[in-house]
Computed example of a mutant assay.
Amino acid sequence: MPTYFWPLILTICANVLYQLSARSVSHTIDPFFSLIITYSAALLGSLVMFLISGSHQSLNYNFHQLNWASVTMGLSIIFVEFGYMLTYKSGAPIGSTPMTVNIGLTLLLIPIGLIFLQESLTLRNLVGVVLAVVAFYLITS
């Protein structure tokens, strides 16, 4: 069994909860106020998990290991969540919205991986890309 199996299951389950939560945000609340509460809960949860994990380095060590990626990931998550909230508020279906987003994301990341990260594209990957494009067309038409 691949070593990423359990983290993948955790990610899928967390994404199900995320999509259900994003779909259930009140249509009358300011989305950015909702994000303030979301990030407050995430900060508290992350702090508790950091403290109880027992496998962490000192705060000083961790601060010195930070780079731009932690900040840009946080900023990008704001717009991912805001985008999902607006998409669901406009009436998009929960059953196909995440797939549409992920197919579009995959189609953008493939050339980035090829050009900047020296990743390879096999024939099998190429067939998957073609199927993803077909799926994207079928879902959005």
Rank of each mutant, 00 (worst) to 15 (best):
L107I: 08
G83M: 03
P98R: 14
L47C: 05
L43H: 02
F136M: 05
M49W: 13
L108A: 12
S120C: 02
I139C: 04
C13R: 07
S24F: 04
I9P: 04
Q57H: 06
I36S: 11
M73H: 13
P98L: 09
H27Y: 06
P7M: 05
T38V: 12
F82I: 03
N102V: 06
Y18R: 08
G95W: 11
F32V: 07
A69Q: 14
G104N: 06
T106P: 00
I112L: 11
G91Q: 11
L105A: 15
E119M: 06
A135C: 05
L109T: 12
T87K: 01
C13M: 11
I110G: 01
L131M: 09
H56V: 08
L8Q: 03
N15W: 03
F82R: 02
Y84F: 15
Q57L: 12
Y4L: 13
P31R: 09
H56T: 10
A42R: 03
M49S: 14
S40E: 03
Y4E: 07
M85I: 09
I115M: 08
T100M: 14
T97C: 05
T100Q: 13
I103N: 01
L123K: 13
V101R: 01
F63I: 07
S70Q: 11
N67Q: 07
Y88D: 00
T122I: 06
F32K: 13
A135I: 00
N102F: 08
G54E: 06
F33H: 10
S55M: 15
Y84K: 02
G54W: 08
N60F: 12
V71S: 09
H27A: 07
L126R: 12
A14M: 10
H64F: 15
F79W: 15
F79I: 05
T72N: 11
V134I: 13
T38A: 03
G74F: 09
F5R: 03
S34V: 06
M1G: 11
N67S: 11
S46W: 03
L121Q: 02
F50H: 14
Y84P: 00
S141K: 10
L123H: 02
L17I: 13
F116H: 04
I115H: 04
T11A: 13
S70A: 15
M73N: 09
N102I: 07
W68S: 11
I52W: 04
M73Q: 15
L35C: 03
M99F: 14
M99W: 06
I9E: 04
H27E: 06
R23I: 01
S34F: 14
L44S: 01
T97F: 05
P111L: 07
Y61N: 12
Q65H: 14
T3R: 14
L138V: 03
G91Y: 04
A132N: 08
L66H: 01
I12Y: 09
L43R: 01
S55K: 11
I12C: 09
L8A: 12
V80T: 13
L17S: 08
H56P: 00
V130G: 02
F116T: 10
I112E: 10
T106A: 15
V80C: 07
L126G: 12
P98H: 09
P111D: 12
S55F: 11
I94M: 14
L17K: 06
G74K: 15
T72V: 15
I94G: 02
V71W: 15
T106W: 06
L44P: 00
N102Q: 10
F116C: 05
E81V: 08
L10N: 05
L47F: 10
T38W: 14
T97Y: 06
